[in-house]
Nucleic acid binder design. Structure first.
Lengths: 233, 233
DNA sequence: TGTGACCCAAACGTCATACTTAATCGCGTT
DNA sequence: AACGCGATTAAGTATGACGTTTGGGTCACA
């Protein structure tokens, strides 16, 4: 991703962030900087900068004379890609996957509708290409290749919507799709109905049929939610 | 909000953040830390911590031997409430308002549908209360009171959806609604049709009619988009 | 003239330390 | 029991030193 390759800062952040989002420190817990210095064997500088970053994510709140307080989950910036990644890697994974899938079910149909209005010919071509790629790889244990086309497809739709905020969800969708492949249906071929729907969405976008693109994408989303048992509980 | 009361850190951040999101530094611009030290008359400590925070928002990227590089807008964490606030306060305001309104149009109908399934009786009562409050304040220059009910209404819907990510959009919706009142229809009473729709949504949620709650909220969203001329361009 | 390796300096990254500030705790007074 | 005041504590800021990376310039050589 970024230049978070290695270094004390990244090491401490990648240790504290996941721990907090995993709930290792209950809300209200207090971390003292000098304690963290000793625990991670780093200087005050590093600890402070990490704290500042966690603070900007609203994971903690630093106050004088009291220490660094862990905030309750309702305060967290749950749209921060880093926070999303940490939560997907922890025990909150199922809950996080459901939240994200519901978000997808809301956003992607609207994005597809907008894409049908605004997609460039190049984007339409990309869409068709990836839809056909999904068809080609939908049988015979080619899940990895299929996944790449699936991710690319949704990324193009979100970008073609012309909405910057939708476009930024591309990474999130990629994480969700990857997570699903790696945990849910790892050994079974993709649902043929879903594959067909993707082809039809590409077609609808190409023909500038916004209504149809939106409705078809809504069907895809419904299928994704069904896979995670997100239904009348 | 947080303890961003005052202090060198907040001062520098609240100066650099808006400047960057306003496009004062074109993507690729380089800021040197010692230059910033002199410009703001603060120590390296403060500058470095600010840079770390901006980096976590993906507004800048700090690299050795080259400096702090301003990243292109596509890289920004546009869901960070701080970034949203900065952009709403800058020249990008119209574009940002449109993006957020489109996001609302995608999320809120789905949220309303979920709320109809999961809202507690207390939440239903709150909803009705605020809808009636909107009715009561919809005439005769009571825009401020109306706005408070409007914001509260949408916040309850988002929270009642039971989805943490939807719930976190409450603040964003509040900013959008406030912005609209303060700039678009400041001197005219709210659209009576919109008021009626809110009452009907509250009713649909109370009756657990998810389909109807979603459809009605979609109408509200369409109205909001029409106000901003987000239509077949 | 072009290309390659090599060296250097620039700017960030980290550490250590001293000092400042503000909020909490506890004591004593009213 | 309520209130106020000072001592204490931990974060906030400033500063100086050193390490590390890396972009670019120089020089030798083909």
């Amino acid at each position: 991703m970024a230049n978070h390759g290695q270094g004390p800062h990244a090491r401490v952040l990648e240790s504290l962030g996941p721990a907090i989002t995993a709930g290792a420190y209950p809300p209200g817990s207090v971390l003292r900087t000098d304690e963290l210095e000793q625990r991670f064997q780093v200087s005050r500088t590093v600890v402070r900068e990490v704290i500042r970053v966690l603070e900007s994510m609203h994971l903690v709140s630093s106050r004088r004379r009291v220490g660094v307080t862990v905030l309750p989950p309702e305060e967290w910036n749950v749209y921060d890609p880093q926070v999303i990644r940490w939560r997907l890697a922890g025990p909150d994974r199922p809950r996080q996957l459901r939240s994200l899938t519901v978000l997808r079910s809301a956003v992607e149909p609207v994005a597809a509708g907008l894409a049908a209005r605004r997609a460039t010919p190049e984007q339409c071509a990309e869409l068709t290409e990836h839809a056909l790629g999904m068809v080609a790889t939908s049988r015979g244990q080619q899940l990895d290749a299929y996944l790449l086309h699936d991710i690319a497809f949704h990324r193009v739709v979100l970008r073609a919507s012309g909405n910057e905020m939708f476009a930024r969800l591309g990474d999130v969708v990629a994480e969700v799709l990857t997570g699903r492949t790696r945990h849910q249906v790892m050994f079974t071929d993709p649902d043929p109905a879903a594959v067909t729907l993707h082809v039809q969405v590409a077609e609808a976008v190409r023909l500038h049929d916004a209504e149809r693109a939106e409705a078809l994408t809504r069907e895809i989303a419904t299928g994704a939610m069904a896979e995670l048992d997100i239904l009348a509980p």
